[in-house]
Design a binder for these strands. Structure first.
Length: 346
DNA sequence: TCTGGGGTCCTAGGACCC
DNA sequence: TCTGGGGTCCTAGGACCC
């Protein structure tokens, strides 16, 4: 076997549920649902994740907790605890960093690795053993020529397995699959593609790029075909990610109708976002306000600040001015404030 | 199934300027 | 007076992902 570059995708299995089961070993083997404050009678709260035992009752992430409770009254509901997941994630990433590889972290529970080796499966197995030894967590590892292939490969590898998906076996593994199996094509685009007679990955790969550009734009159209051919980014970026922006939003359990009340909540969110920006040492260039009306109509308004700032007063005032541009005659179920940061060295 | 929270990127249309 | 074409910036919304 010859030495060459590979991309590995490390994906922790059932990450949030696994962390919770380490803290509550007595719940192993039981249906467990994690989400919100852990109260399944609370409206407008959804599951962050569900264990395999809970999934057998038809429960899945994104499902309202009240629905989950109806489907499985004996399920155990736990509150979501982001700091605990953050801490567990850091232990995993520290473990990966000890390997002589290039590491790109992609959130709490996944990372891409660039490695030069003649045996990527052996490296993958070493990684799995190290992660299990150091954190008691299990992961799946996908191996590919690029990130797209490696990402899909880790899906095939689940749970706790290793799978290699390269240009060699791409067609065999992917050609008959629906287009939304590709990483970057979701339900909407897949449906639109089906409307053009493109149902499978093979059909999308054989489509005319110009025709795709007509329907999906000059960048996206050809990009979808590119994905269907198994191509993708192969560069592992080891420098830490610089956030483009930041936001905070709240869904209220009971609708807001009072304008003073709404303005008060917007001011609070804006101040939080400003404090976050100060803590992150980033300047804000743009402020946007999000309002979701009942039943589920979402609208956003934004404006660019005359001068980048971190001043909470300025950011809050901007958010309140933007809020004035909304028609607030309908009941409101969600409010949000988002900011865009200036990018360094620009 | 009455549908969270936090991100990223792309597109399209209008304003404005030359 | 009327009109062209291009470039850039701003804003709103859509789609995707975890």
């Amino acid at each position: 076997m010859s030495t060459r570059d590979w991309i590995l995708h490390v994906d922790l299995d059932q990450f949030i549920a696994a962390v919770e089961l380490l803290r509550h070993p007595e719940l192993r083997g039981k249906p467990v649902v994690v989400g919100g404050s852990g109260d399944p009678t609370q409206p407008r709260t959804v599951a962050a994740t569900a264990t395999y035992e809970a999934r057998e009752h038809g429960i899945h992430s994104g499902m309202p907790l009240r629905t989950a409770l109806k489907r499985c009254p004996e399920a155990v509901f736990l509150p979501s605890d982001p700091p605990a997941y953050e801490a567990a994630s850091e232990r995993v990433m520290a473990t990966l960093r000890d390997f002589p590889v290039r590491l790109e972290i992609w959130g709490w529970d996944e990372a891409f690795i660039g490695a030069t080796t003649d045996d990527p499966e052996a490296l993958a197995a070493d990684i799995q053993h190290a992660v299990r030894a150091r954190t008691d967590l299990s992961c799946s590892v996908g191996i590919g020529d690029n990130k797209h292939q490696a990402k899909l490969a880790s899906g095939y590898a689940k749970p706790a397995g290793i799978y290699r998906l390269t240009s060699e076996n791409w067609a065999e593994a992917m050609n008959d699959r629906p287009t939304d199996a590709l990483w970057g094509i979701g339900a909407r685009i897949s449906k639109k593609l089906a409307g053009l007679g493109l149902h499978t990955v093979a059909q999308l790969a054989a489509a005319d790029p110009a025709h795709l550009a007509e329907h999906f734009g000059p960048t996206n159209g050809p990009w979808y075909r590119y994905l269907a051919l198994g191509k993708g980014e192969a560069e592992v970026v080891t420098t830490p990610w610089i956030a483009r922006g930041h936001s905070r939003e709240t869904t209220f359990q009971r609708d807001l109708t009072d304008k003073t009340d709404i303005a008060h909540h917007i001011a609070t969110l804006a101040d939080q976002v400003a404090q976050d920006a100060i803590e992150a040492d980033r300047e804000v260039t743009r402020v946007s306000v999000k309002v979701r009306f009942t039943p589920f109509l979402t609208r956003t308004r934004q404006s660019k600040l005359p001068v980048p700032t971190t001043d909470p007063g300025t950011i809050t005032e901007a958010a309140l001015t933007i809020l004035d541009r909304f028609d607030l005659t309908r009941p409101v179920r969600l409010l949000g404030v988002a900011v865009e940061y200036t990018l360094p060295q620009e």
